[in-house]
Design a binder for these strands. Structure first.
Ligand code: MN
Ligand code: MN
Ligand code: ZN
Ligand code: ZN
Lengths: 137, 137
DNA sequence: ATAATCAATGTACTTCCGTTGCATACTTAA
DNA sequence: TTAAGTATGCAACGGAAGTACATTGATTAT
């Protein structure tokens, strides 16, 4: 568990008890989580704290936010050493319409797209929807 | 303007005054519109009516909904004869972080993606974010 | 050790958007 | 002309994101 503290420290986030718990929870869970989700797990903690923890994690590059089309922000841990801002590390996400879970497909990078003149892309979001591995098996 | 009535009729939507106005508005405007947007334009009409009009249009294949990552649903008219559900007609969208406008890039189709075993894709959403043509010019 | 300072958490409240239930007006068909 | 179906209006609800302010906790300097 010292690894988590180190990871947080390295990214400039003070490793408080709450933050370590949330990080641990997200690490064990292999799918993207929403605030409501975390809220249910850590019912004794305040929503705002959890909200701000996610925001802090995001700002410091510990998690990345995912827009899977449900209009609910979800978050997933970044791979160690990944730079989500850079095009090379942008991966696609899969949202299962059956179980409503969203996963990172970190191996599947978003292909480069040529845009019409005048458009300058700084970020990209690619979400596929359908039936996930667990639900189709 | 008879064209609009025909378009609505052809898609099984009764061409009421309100619906024609909304269609006309969306046709003139070349960017995706949100409900709030339409609400401001047609201030005398009720929110719910506008909301349901968009929903009806969507169900009948007259408009398609766009998730541009702002967590606000936006809508744009479908090209005549387009089948948004089909992979071949899935195009990408561009969201300008400067003017907050979202446009359809109907020429830019979403490339086919090979998924890991077990995943079955039925829909795709690709949004690029950055500076749009108007803002970069 | 104490006080001063800054960061993290808690409480409460607000806003925005999407959505639904039910009543009323309008349109179409018998 | 009546009845049935559809569209619109009115009112309210719920979820999620966000913020202001108070309080607690941890760090640092004196
Ligand atoms: Mn991801
Ligand atoms: Mn479009
Ligand atoms: Zn699933
Ligand atoms: Zn712009």
């Amino acid at each position: 568990m010292k690894e988590i503290e180190k990871r947080l420290n390295d990214n400039g986030v003070r490793p408080t008890a709450m933050r370590i718990l949330i990080y641990k929870y997200m690490a064990e869970k292999e799918i993207a989580v929403a605030l409501t989700n975390i809220e249910n797990v850590f019912a004794k903690a305040d929503r705002t704290t959890l909200y701000r923890t996610l925001k802090t994690f995001e700002q410091k590059g510990i998690v990345h936010q995912i827009d899977d089309g449900t209009h609910i922000s979800k978050f997933a841990l970044c791979e160690p050493g990944c730079n989500c801002e850079l095009e090379q590390d942008l991966h696609l996400h899969f949202h299962c319409t059956n179980c409503d879970e969203t996963v990172c497909l970190t191996e599947q990078k978003i292909p480069h797209i040529n845009l019409p003149d005048g458009y300058v892309a700084e970020d990209a979001n690619l979400v596929l929807k359908g039936i996930c591995e667990k639900c189709s098996g």
